[in-house]
């Protein structure tokens, strides 16, 4: 068992007087793909943002043995690659420039004048997501699937030990969904702790080492997919029953009926 890399203790977040995150504690190791599931409004995005230090929370987050609150913004940015929902780009910047912004925490401010080290990190990230071929095309001219891969490449380019991805497979066709999950799986296998929010229990069951289940601001289950996505949890949290099976050491869950 490797040692914990990311821990949260008693995280509480209140947004406009609503208690969105309640007493969340967790301990996670590197080299894991962790999916975060739960009904709409359960607090999944809030938890990701609290872990990244993007909103004010009470409680402590420790990353790599250091307290998040004590780290300057730039140092936090080196530790977390954050992919928000919708991954918006406001101006038609070339894909290369967008991915190169992943090196911003490392002091690379100009995408056209990257150090050899930064440039190779950008190349690696773009190769991993297969977007190198359109590196000079403006992001606004790319398809939804291509744009999401560019956004993922930007997060990979940070080369942070932790990746926080908020619904990276939303509104993607099945081929891209699997591709995105495979990319994150590979990153995890190479040592990253990837925490991925998803509504797709099938993808969660199949790809993750650990599933975190949230309901009403609380973490109600965590563990390997078979355990965390038990029949009882699915019924209590999602109010569904599911078809369950195993295939090549991977778990299959297909939401089947309401209960």
């Amino acid at each position: 068992m490797s040692e914990p890399f990311l821990t949260a203790q008693q995280l509480n977040v209140t947004l406009s007087r609503r208690h969105v995150l309640k007493e969340v504690s967790l301990t996670l190791e590197r080299q894991r793909l962790v999916t975060l599931v739960g009904p709409n409004g359960a607090g999944k995005t809030t938890l990701l943002r609290a872990l990244a230090g993007l909103l004010r929370s009470s409680g402590t987050v420790q990353v790599g043995g250091e307290t998040l609150a004590a780290l300057p913004l730039r140092e936090r940015a080196k530790r977390f690659g954050y992919l928000p929902q919708g991954h918006m780009v406001h101006w038609p910047l070339p894909a290369w420039d967008i991915v190169a912004l992943g090196r911003y925490p490392h002091g690379a401010s100009d995408p056209e004048h990257l150090s050899a080290q930064d440039a190779s990190a950008v190349m690696r990230a773009m190769q991993a997501t297969g977007v190198l071929e359109f590196s000079q095309r403006p992001a606004t001219e790319l398809s939804g699937g291509e744009r999401s891969r560019v956004a993922l490449a930007r997060v990979l380019a940070v080369e942070a030990p932790v990746i926080l991805a908020d619904e990276p497979t939303a509104s993607l066709d099945p081929g891209y969904q699997i591709e995105v999950m495979r990319t994150l799986r590979t990153a995890a296998d190479n040592g990253v702790l990837a925490i991925v929010v998803t509504h797709d229990l099938g993808l969660a069951a199949r790809f993750s080492d650990i599933v975190l289940v949230m309901q009403d601001g609380r973490l109600v289950a965590q563990g390997p997919p078979a355990e965390a996505l038990s029949e009882r949890i699915l019924a209590e949290v999602f109010r569904i029953s599911a078809f369950r099976a195993g295939h090549e050491h991977q778990m299959i869950i297909v939401p089947w009926a309401g209960v």
Partner: peptide
């Protein structure tokens, strides 16, 4: 250009 949240996560 990537939005406020992403910029913040990049250290801005």
């Amino acid at each position: 250009s990537l939005g406020e949240e992403t910029a913040q996560s990049l250290g801005v």
